[in-house]
């Protein structure tokens, strides 16, 4: 199954020390993830993951590695505390999944509540057959407005951090005035 491949790629990321290798493996990871999402019928999400995760993230990671030192300088030391903590939390979570309904059953609680209404009324109310689009932009418009604002804010933040400021001189002056 594809999920196993995903786990193998993750192990490779954990062990890899060259950050360049990590960036490429992260791209591979995203592509495998997109395939898994297609198998799970989430075509819109798969498309986003393939273009964002495998495309833009990888480019940004490589651009960062161009700016900084690209190998982990410290030797890998076994961090038993972190390992123990992760395995322990994982065990508790696996135990928690045992009460979840089995994979793929149509009568699970998640399929009972609002989703049938969206599927039944989307075409009648909005004229849009792709339910994902109609929920995204219409039924849950507020959500998407919020997400767009978050992207806007993150973009502004990066520009503030990285821009070769035309007014850098003035900013330094102000800092000195305050200092």
């Amino acid at each position: 199954m594809l999920l196993t491949l995903l786990a193998v790629v993750t192990m490779a990321i954990v062990r890899q020390r060259s950050l360049f290798g990590v960036a490429i493996l992260a791209g591979i990871y995203s592509f495998v993830m997109a395939s898994v999402l297609i198998v799970l019928d989430a075509v819109d999400v798969a498309m986003t993951e393939a273009s964002v995760g495998a495309g833009v993230s990888t480019v940004l990671l490589l651009a960062t590695l161009h700016l900084i030192n690209s190998t982990e300088t410290r030797p890998i030391r076994r961090n038993l505390l972190a390992l123990f903590f992760s395995v322990g939390t994982g065990a508790i979570l696996v135990w928690g999944t045992l009460i979840l309904p089995p994979f793929g059953t149509p009568d699970a609680a998640i399929h009972k509540h609002v989703a049938p209404r969206y599927i039944a009324d989307s075409v009648k109310e909005t004229g849009i057959p792709n339910v994902v689009t109609s929920i995204l932009a219409d039924y849950r418009g507020y959500d998407t407005l919020g997400e767009t604002t978050v992207i806007f804010t993150a973009g502004i933040g990066v520009l503030l951090l990285l821009h070769r400021a035309r007014r850098r001189g003035r900013a330094v002056d102000e800092a000195e005035d305050r200092g």
Binding site: L60, T133, A137, L162
Partner: peptide, 29 residues
């Protein structure tokens, strides 16, 4: 509703395209 969804998606397109390009420019410069 169709018109509204169209406008909203156009807004999302403009923001996302602008942000991603600006991010790349920032790192590349």
């Amino acid at each position: 509703h169709e018109l509204g969804v169209f406008l909203v998606e156009a807004g999302v397109l403009v923001t996302v395209a602008g942000t991603m390009t600006a991010l790349f420019y920032a790192f590349a410069e």
